[in-house]
Amino acid sequence: MDMELTGRRVLVTGASQGIGEGLAKAFAAEGCHLALVARSADKLEALAAGLRAAHGVRVDVLALDMTQAGAVEEIMAFAGDADVLVNNAGAIPGGNLWDVDAQAWRKGWELKVFGYIDLTRALYPRMKARGGGVILNNIGNGGQNPDFNYIAGSTGNAALMAFTCALGGRSLEDGIRVVGVNPGPVATERIAKVLKSHAARLLGDEARSGELMAGYPLGRAATVAEVADLFVYLASPRSSYTSGTIVTVDGGITSRRSVA
């Protein structure tokens, strides 16, 4: 199916690894030109070279710590003409209210929560002036599943869900679609670390993390491609009536709740 994205300019933050890397590959395969932002210059350059060779698309990279003062302005100078923004940078630390102190909590939110909000605030008016655009927020199903042991992340993700729905509820009036995606566990290095931590806490041995994985739907996490392909569809004109909502891709984890 042609996603009608050829030649579109896509800005992806946190693009050097994990889901961000998968997003870059998926959009490049659709013929999109990419603007990729992440901390690691080496990883970005290697990824960009591979995508240019494989797909013949333009790939520009910006190595940047998005928590630094002036970062949003640098990104706007770099890719303020983007047709699609994918907010993806950041990971909020796990732990309960006392594990995550005030400094760690603020640091995690600075990149993921406020990073998403600040970049959206900057880019939205330019999209409006050009006649439209798409803003996609990679959030996470923790916002739908409040977790005592992921309190900073659950709270931050819930805030981003509300932000996405509040903005996207009226953004079509400006020709802009705003949509959130809530992945559950995804097969990345990060989920491997999380599972080891959970296994150590729950089972007394991080080496037993595979036992926790077996409890996921289909006995596995989602693949990066399964998540990235959803973003591509949501960014495309084929999803032109989708805005102000959250799409959860977690194999049904969020819907497993029971009253008994």
Rank of each mutant, 00 (worst) to 15 (best):
residue 1 M to D: 08
residue 7 G to E: 00
residue 8 R to K: 14
residue 14 G to Q: 15
residue 15 A to D: 14
residue 22 G to T: 01
residue 22 G to P: 06
residue 24 A to V: 00
residue 26 A to V: 00
residue 32 C to L: 10
residue 37 V to C: 02
residue 42 D to F: 04
residue 42 D to S: 07
residue 54 A to L: 05
residue 56 G to T: 13
residue 62 L to P: 03
residue 67 T to R: 10
residue 69 A to Y: 09
residue 72 V to L: 11
residue 77 A to R: 14
residue 79 A to H: 04
residue 80 G to A: 05
residue 82 A to F: 00
residue 92 I to T: 04
residue 101 D to S: 13
residue 104 A to G: 13
residue 104 A to R: 15
residue 106 R to Y: 12
residue 107 K to H: 09
residue 109 W to I: 01
residue 110 E to S: 05
residue 115 G to F: 11
residue 125 P to I: 01
residue 130 R to F: 01
residue 131 G to R: 14
residue 131 G to M: 13
residue 133 G to F: 00
residue 136 L to R: 05
residue 139 I to K: 05
residue 148 F to Y: 15
residue 150 Y to L: 12
residue 159 A to V: 12
residue 164 T to F: 00
residue 169 G to D: 08
residue 173 E to P: 09
residue 174 D to R: 08
residue 183 P to V: 02
residue 194 V to M: 06
residue 194 V to G: 07
residue 196 K to V: 06
residue 204 G to E: 12
residue 205 D to W: 00
residue 205 D to N: 07
residue 208 R to P: 01
residue 212 L to S: 10
residue 215 G to V: 06
residue 229 D to A: 10
residue 232 V to K: 00
residue 235 A to H: 02
residue 235 A to P: 02
residue 243 S to V: 10
residue 246 I to L: 14
residue 248 T to Q: 01
residue 249 V to Q: 15
residue 253 I to K: 04
